[in-house]
Design a protein around this nucleic acid. Sequence first.
DNA 1: GGTAGACCTGGACGC
DNA 2: GCGTCCAGGTCTACC
Length: 293
Amino acid sequence: MEVRLPARAPFSLSAVVRSHGWIRLAPFAEDEGSGGLTYVGQLDSGRVAAVHIGESAEGVRVEVDGGLSEAEGAQVARQVTWMLGLDQDFSSFYALARQEPKLAHVEERARGRILRSATLFEDTVKTILTTNTSWAGTIRMVRALVSQFGPPLPADPSRHAFPSPEQLAASDAETLRSVAGLGYRAPYVLELARSVAAGALDLEGFKATDTPTPELRQELLAIKGVGEYAAANLLMLLGRYDFVPVDSWALKMVSHEWYSGEAVGRAEVESAFEGWGEWKGLAYWFWAWSYSA
DNA sequence: GGTAGACCTGGACGC
DNA sequence: GCGTCCAGGTCTACC
């Protein structure tokens, strides 16, 4: 099956792929040379399929091995549109960025979109697994979760989709700790999976809600394992850029950018981007830092 | 509201 | 090879 999906201009698939490290987390894979990507996903029908995405003149070209029903094809189209932010509008951000040399590159290179997973559940688990660990640790934990708990791709059983809330909820904290190496995060992931599986937490509903951002942030902070950094990161993935995800890297960058390498705290990072209003998260994300770690 | 200590793991380092 | 230290956010208890 092949379908072509339009994207709001300007658009660059490689800019989305390189927007952050998500492309290195299973079940994403970068298509070497083409600038595109592959994602193994599980559809509502239960089918596990590999989705290949490449850039086209009007947006993207999506290929799925094998035939899909009409409903499955429609779901793939919705998921890809969400994952790549095909309909996102950054014109207001670009208008402000034109006045800032450190962000002069964003419009020219069509930056602004941030790669998302198919579900907010997957992105929330991945975000929790970025906390208090190295990036290599995050890659290892996500890979283990996917390979040990995710449903296999029929055409290539060595590849798996990200496990559903139900599939993780059926496990237990000790198994998640020992098999996937989640450490103390295991009960957080398990509680999240069980809440979503039981219908007590509607994460997918967060994608389209008109709940004000500060209230949405409070709902995210209520999730065990999600603190201020993780909540801001998830808000960014939801297209809300009112908060800066302050982590150790942000502290280091701001320290060298404006404080001559002196140690800074959260307040200094937030202050540095205060003037960017609803776009402060994106301004931080795509800032052309003087210092390279 | 602010702060200290614990939580896990892997990597770096010294012996 | 082994032991120790450290980095990375969040939670909980305490003030």
